[in-house]
Amino acid sequence: MSSSDLNAPAPVLVNLQLNGEATSVAVPPHWTLLELLRYGLGQTGTKQGCDKGDCGTCTVRIDGEPQLACLTLAVDVRDRSVETIEGLGTGGEPHPLQEAFARLGAAQCGFCTPGMLMSATAYVDDLTLQDNPQVKRDDIAAALAGNLCRCTGYTKILDAVEEVAHSVLNRQRELAESTAEDE
């Protein structure tokens, strides 16, 4: 975190879609997206565990893809869409993954959780776009293989994602069947 300082070039204006909202912010060019989110915009839901790409704690979705905020220059998200944990669901209306994580005890200290959820939502969303989606625990593990968790041994995280993936696909199938019937 830093103010503009030490001969830093002037801040530049960046327009982005942050959790669906058009956001304009002036940011020093040497700031990462992680700094912008946490210290520039007060969106502290995205966490920092290493600040150099090793842990996945800072994962956000940029144009839908899970990426690392600590290795993304803030100016590089100009005109792009950034989704963070703050956009995922609210206390009153949690995202199904948030609900499952809570119920199944998939978040212990909760520090890896925002990043983990960003990778997990991307996995589930991708699944819904596939022609013949299959939920496989190995695929879930692969999708989360860039997010370290030190508390859970991953077991309950995989359980939660697996459960939600199944229920999302089931709902999608039911929907498809009912629209097929309607036609």
């Binding site: 839901g45 944990i85 206390g91 949690p94 119920r103 978040a107 959780t113 925002p114």
Partner: peptide, 11 residues
């Protein structure tokens, strides 16, 4: 689960 974990889960 942990009732307070929803806070962490919402960031």
């Amino acid at each position: 689960g942990k009732p307070d974990s929803l806070d962490a889960l919402a960031g």
